[in-house]
């Protein structure tokens, strides 16, 4: 039962959130993307055993998407932040 610190609302129960997977950069323009690149974007993720970055949505609360750094083994949540605001991910 995770207790997740939404960047806007503070710590809330896992029930209020939706997991969005590992973020991936959308290759554009679509016309110049090979089938292999597109397939990677759709399906391939690094899936790190350990500290990983993930997209989460506070769908049962403020409805905002945000980034989380979380250990996929211990479930420890290191930090969360709004998209584009910090150092989690590109």
């Amino acid at each position: 039962m995770l207790n997740i610190p939404c960047p806007h609302c503070g710590p809330r129960s896992e029930y209020e959130f939706q997991f969005g997977g590992e973020p991936a950069t959308r290759p554009i323009p679509a016309s110049e993307v090979s089938d292999a690149q597109w397939s990677d974007y759709l399906y391939a993720r690094t899936n790190i055993k350990g500290r990983n970055r993930e997209l989460w949505c506070h769908s049962g609360g403020c409805g905002q998407w945000f980034l989380m750094e979380r250990d996929t083994v211990t479930h420890e949540i290191f930090r969360t932040e709004t998209i584009g605001s910090g150092t989690i991910g590109a």
């Binding site: 949505c57 769908s59 998407w65 998209i83 584009g84």
Partner: peptide
């Protein structure tokens, strides 16, 4: 609605 929010917030903010 969730899909519109997702694309607006993460891809076209």
């Amino acid at each position: 609605l969730a899909m519109l929010e997702l694309w607006h917030q993460t891809e076209y903010p």
